[in-house]
């Protein structure tokens, strides 16, 4: 065997070894998921282990300051307590009354007058919602009752609707001073209960800090069975 062919066969051997150790190698797009990922998913399901991401408050403050300095659109601080996740999001698109905020790691949330109508990239995403009826009562800071509709994908990717009955009422007043927002507020509570099959006994209570002009500047809203509540703080 000539030195050249020895070299070649050992190179092929190395490539083959690398492919084995990486589970697979390919030039195909999106062929990077392997049975190893499936096994990891299954193991996580068995042992219910979840990754926890704790943000660094200083880094977050710096990020918020830099975004506020560099954009003219709206900026929010978004926290998902169930995941210990906090992120700063800026306005990336506006479609009529709907404003979509996005983060650099491809997560987004859409608000209509401060009320969450959709999430993307959070898992168990809220696809779309009908919130006009509850929104009107909340922003008018009145007592009232209305239905809302939240739409999700179920485990088969079929759209299912959660349409709870919600009671809205004021609950004291307060003050919000964060980022560029400084205002006195009325705290509004929205208590919802659903009784349909998939969401039997799903209840949640959203709270909103509403400015005298009827703007929601801070809120804690329930978005999905997986993520529970998220906290949104307007920074501008």
């Amino acid at each position: 065997m000539s030195p050249k062919s020895t070299l070649r066969s050992s190179t092929i051997g190395l490539v083959a070894l690398a492919c084995l150790s990486l589970a697979a190698c390919s030039n195909r797009q999106n062929n990077d998921l392997s049975t190893t990922d499936m096994a990891k998913g299954a193991l996580a399901a068995i042992f219910k282990r979840e990754g926890v991401k704790t943000p660094d408050p200083n880094a977050l403050a710096q990020q918020a300051a830099s975004i506020l300095a560099n954009t003219s659109g709206q900026v929010i601080l978004l926290a998902i307590p169930s995941r210990d996740a906090v992120t700063v999001m800026q306005e990336i698109e506006r479609n009529g009354p709907y404003v979509t905020f996005g983060s650099s790691d491809r997560r987004s949330i859409t608000l209509k007058a401060g009320i969450v109508t959709a999430t993307r990239g959070l898992g168990n995403d809220l696809l779309s919602s009908d919130v006009d009826a509850v929104s009107a009562i909340i922003r008018a800071r009145k007592v009232g009752e209305a239905y809302r509709v939240n739409r999700y994908l179920d485990g088969e990717n079929i759209t299912v609707a959660l349409d709870p009955y919600c009671q809205v009422k004021p609950d004291g007043s307060g003050q919000v001073a964060l980022g560029e927002v400084h205002t006195s507020t009325t705290r509004m509570l929205e208590s919802c209960i659903a009784d349909k099959d998939e969401f039997r006994d799903t209840t949640f209570q959203n709270s909103y800090q509403v400015s005298p002009g009827g703007r929601i500047v801070q809120s804690r809203q329930w978005v999905s069975p997986l993520n529970g509540y998220i906290v949104i703080q307007s920074l501008r």
């Binding site: 987004s108 990239g121 898992g123 168990n124 995403d125 485990g155």
Partner: peptide, 11 residues
């Protein structure tokens, strides 16, 4: 993950 965990689309 119900509905998938993939990144958000551009609006």
């Amino acid at each position: 993950v119900k509905g998938g965990a993939e990144g958000a689309p551009l609006p």
